[in-house]
Design a binder for these strands. Structure first.
Length: 196
DNA sequence: TATTCGATGTGCT
DNA sequence: GCACATCGAATAC
């Protein structure tokens, strides 16, 4: 199986402020080929992490071995391991060397639900398949091997510029202890597939 | 060098 | 509601 380049979001989309990209990613479709199976999900929850004045951002204290791809060019993928066991998937925003990104926190399963369930193991409720950053990563079998890849030219994963939603809500980001005053979490209002 | 803590999810109480 | 899995990076000593 092969992914056709259907309305793939281009570099200009990602090469902007992560707050804008985070909001505009809501409603877009993430497409992936996993083990010859097509997986599609509608992004319904994101968080922006900035390069400056954002203590919750991994880039806040500069480049490390783990976060170096967060400083890659716009449209690249930043995957990191959290709590020693789970993975989180980010898209890099702005120019190379800046260090900003958008975390994909939840998606609404659209296509390939059976395969997502296999990837998730025991889970059998559709609402639980992708309603969290590491749940979604597991459903789409995203691990560290995707860190540093690009959504602009990958043959197996990209984000498509299609789909519309009614309304976007915002809130503080989840699971952080610093910069909690920043309203950088965005979600599709009324969606049953967000993390909380 | 040692300890603490996190952009989390699951299972048990 | 709470403990735990388990690792990279920050912080403590």
């Amino acid at each position: 199986m092969e992914l056709y380049n259907t309305n793939r979001l281009d570099k200009d989309f990602y090469n902007r402020n992560p707050i804008v990209v985070a909001q505009e990613l809501i409603g877009k479709y993430l497409c992936k080929i996993d083990n010859d199976k097509l997986l599609i999900g509608k992004i319904c929850e994101t968080e922006a992490y900035l390069s400056d004045n954002d203590e919750a951002s991994h880039s806040y204290r500069g480049i490390t071995k783990r976060n170096k791809s967060m400083f890659d060019d716009a449209g690249n993928i930043y995957v990191y391991k959290i709590y020693g066991i789970h993975y989180c998937f980010n898209v890099v925003t702005e120019a190379k060397g800046i260090g900003s990104a958008v975390l994909i926190r939840a998606i609404e399963p659209i296509y390939g639900l059976a395969h997502m369930q296999i990837n998730r193991g025991k889970i059998n409720k559709t609402k639980e398949l992708c309603s969290g950053p590491s749940k979604f990563a597991q459903a789409f079998s995203i691990d560290l091997s995707y860190d540093g890849n690009s959504l602009l030219d990958s043959k197996i994963i990209y984000i498509s510029d299609m789909g519309v939603i009614a309304k976007i809500g915002s809130s503080a980001r989840i699971g952080i202890s610093k910069s909690t005053d920043l309203m950088y979490r965005f979600y599709e209002a009324g969606s049953q597939f967000v993390s909380r």
